Amino acid sequence: MASTLKTSTRRTRTFLSGSAALVLPAILLLLVTYILPLLQVLRLSVSSADPSVLDGAGFTLRHYFEFFADPTSLRVIWRSLWISFVSALIALVIAYPYAISVAKSGPVMRRVLISLALLPMTTSGVVRAYGVIMVLGREGPLNKLLMALGLVSQPVQFLYGPAALIIGNIYFVMPFVILPLAAGIARLDGRLLEAASTLGATKVSINRTITLPLLVPSIAAGTIVAFTLNMTAFVTPGLLGGQGYLMLTTLLGQQMFNLANWITGSVIAVVLLVIVIVTMTAYQTWLDRKAGFYAPR
């Protein structure tokens, strides 16, 4: 017995003094700031107590049935999904040529382009959202340009609708798409592209059959991060969509902060978490099946 205890103590000391001890602070931080609050949200979502009580008790799935039975909830879920997906897709299309420029530029120009890509991240989400409001407003430069060109006769209402949300989301997630793409393009073996060109392949064919399959991991990383950030953003839809064009996050904030309905808010939080996890898993599985081959990881 004593020998077993000594062996166990020795193993524990070895674990705590080894490289595994380096992850303990991160694990403890994750446990306190994420796991425990998440468990509390899960518990509240199935609580049969009063919706305004944070200390839930009992068990019921009635709140989930009521949430999905409400047509408004289904519209908000669909709106959040398609706006997040379209924003991530457009961000990918815009970021791809920019990432190519970053990867193919010299050291000085590469630093300049990366700094420009990261520039929006130097300000808070609120400041960025208000910047988009100033640009897209009825008296903003975009409407003035459209009217000066004669394309419209009166200011267009961009704000508080899908256009403003998509533009704001793209602006917010662009750096997270550019950087993985630029890193992936920089790692490409140029000899493969040269060999394909020597054998008579066109640039379009090279991009479709060589470059894009090799960039699947980078594309997946950038678009998954973009989609997740779009789905879970609160400031952007709150300021650009307003209360008249609710997303899941703004609906959650409305229930929790305005109505103090903690149980319904917890249900929305769990639904949002499940949607993000399921969508990410399905998207990654689809990419795995469609890609012919992958770049080295």
Rank of each mutant, 00 (worst) to 15 (best):
R187D: 15
A295E: 14
Y64M: 03
T4E: 11
F257V: 05
V132K: 01
P155K: 12
T72M: 10
I185V: 13
E139A: 05
L179Y: 08
G241I: 03
S124D: 09
N207Y: 13
S3Q: 10
V53P: 01
F158Q: 09
L119K: 02
A183Q: 00
F172I: 08
K104V: 11
H63Q: 14
L5M: 13
A282S: 12
V46K: 04
P71N: 08
R128N: 03
V126E: 01
L179D: 10
A260Q: 10
S218W: 01
L199P: 02
L287S: 01
V53H: 05
A20G: 08
G131T: 12
G137A: 12
S84I: 12
I27V: 15
V86P: 00
L89G: 00
V270P: 06
I133V: 06
P213M: 10
A221E: 15
A49E: 08
T60V: 07
R75G: 03
T232C: 10
L116I: 01
G150H: 12
A103E: 01
A95K: 07
G125L: 05
A88S: 14
P175I: 03
V41N: 00
V173P: 00
A291S: 13
L251A: 10
M109K: 13
V225N: 06
A163L: 09
S48G: 13
N207I: 12
A57R: 14
V112E: 08
I90Y: 02
S17W: 02
Y294P: 00
A196W: 03
V278M: 06
N207Q: 11
T209G: 11
L29F: 15
L92K: 03
L61H: 07
V102A: 05
V216T: 15
L61R: 05
L29P: 05
V102W: 04
V276Y: 05
T12W: 12
T60H: 04
D70V: 08
T202L: 01
L31S: 13
A182T: 00
F59P: 01
S153K: 15
V156K: 00
F68Y: 13
G56V: 04
F257P: 04
G265I: 02
F85W: 06
L74R: 10
L81F: 11
P51R: 06
L42M: 14
K290A: 03
A99K: 02
A195I: 10
I100E: 13
I94Y: 08
L188G: 06
V156R: 06
G184N: 05
V112R: 14
S80N: 09
G140A: 05
S124M: 02
R128C: 04
A195P: 11
I170H: 11
V225W: 09
F67S: 04
L28I: 08
I219T: 08
F15V: 08
V108D: 04
A269P: 07
V86M: 06
L179N: 09
L29Y: 15
A129Q: 04
L92V: 04
D288Q: 13
N169F: 15
L252P: 00
S197D: 11
K6F: 07
L74S: 04
T211M: 09
G241L: 09
G106H: 03
I27E: 07
Y160A: 01
T228Y: 06
L24Q: 06
A26W: 15
Q254R: 09
S205K: 14
L28E: 00
A201P: 01
M147I: 10
L239C: 13
P25G: 10
M231N: 00
T122R: 09
L24D: 08
L188H: 10
F293M: 15
M121E: 12
Y34I: 07
V127G: 13
R10G: 14
